[in-house]
Every structure is written in C-alpha cells, then in structure tokens.
C-alpha cells in the first residue's frame, strides 16, 4: 500500500436502550462497517453533557456522533427530547466557533435499526475522512505536550 487512507477517530456517545442495542444487532446480524468508531454507552442521550463532546475532541477525536432513541421511544420518556433541544443550541454554538456539522453528528437509531446504524456510521466516517484530521484542535491539544 503506497498511499494510506486517513483513518479518522470517531467517538460515538450512544444510549443504552436504542442505539447501543442497534449496534449490537448490527454485530449479531454480521453486518460490516468501518472500524473507526469508539462507542461510549450512556443510559440516555439526556445524560450526554456537551462537555463530553468537547472532551472527546480534546482527546484527539476527529469527529463525534451522538445517537439515541427516536422521539417518543425514550426509555425514560423524555430524555431524548430534552437532549434534542440542548443539541440544537450546542450544535449551533459549535458551528459558530468553527466546529461544523462535518465533525459533529447526531442520529436516532433504534434497537431494531442495525442496518441504519451501519449506514449512519459509514456516512459519518466518510464525511470526517473527507475533511481530514482535526488539525485545528490538535494544534491546541499539543500546547505544552512533551516532545522528546
């Protein structure tokens, strides 16, 4: 291989009841998707504090996906509805400071949507691969890092 493809690091914050189970279904159904994603399971999208997303970028993520139950399906009835409102505000803010929708993604994937999960995650990885490594954030991450 002379020309290696850029392999982005994607962090996906997923809810326990829908998307995580959906991803599980993708696995048990032997569906294949690109392996660039690290799943972090949380009880609910309502539990996802935007500070987690910033932390993911600080730890070197090139893109972040937040995924949970469809509206109305939330295990806790309202968690994803509160989350949706929060992420409208947060995604606009992130866009304003220069982290646009090519790096920050959101989706609803239910427990039965193994195929949708595969499609979503492939799409996210391809989008991030296209915009390349998150050099801007890596620059501020590298401040005061020890070079030997």
């Amino acid at each position: 291989m002379s020309e290696e493809k850029f392999q982005p690091k994607i962090v996906a914050f997923v809810c326990n009841w829908c998307t995580y189970t959906g991803a599980d279904l993708a696995g048990t159904s032997r569906l294949k998707y690109q392996p660039n994603v690290r799943l972090i399971r949380l009880p609910c999208t309502g539990r996802i504090d935007p500070v987690f997303i910033i932390k993911a970028f600080e730890k070197g993520a090139d893109g972040v996906l937040v995924s949970g139950c469809h509206p109305g399906d939330c295990h806790y009835n309202l968690g994803n509805l509160h989350a949706r409102r929060r992420f409208i505000l947060f995604s606009e803010l992130m866009n304003y400071v220069g982290i646009d929708s090519s790096r920050l993604h959101f989706s609803w994937v239910s427990a039965s949507e193994g195929k949708k999960w595969v499609d979503v995650i492939n799409e996210v990885i391809d989008t991030v691969r296209e915009v390349g490594p998150f050099k801007k954030y890596q620059k501020i991450n590298k401040e005061f890092v020890l070079h030997e």
Partner: peptide, 9 residues
C-alpha cells in the same frame, strides 16, 4: 415535540 431535528440523521 415539534423541536427541529433536521440536523439529526
């Protein structure tokens, strides 16, 4: 329930 979700896949 009507909050915008066009940014959510």
């Amino acid at each position: 329930m009507k909050d915008r979700q066009d940014f959510i896949k």
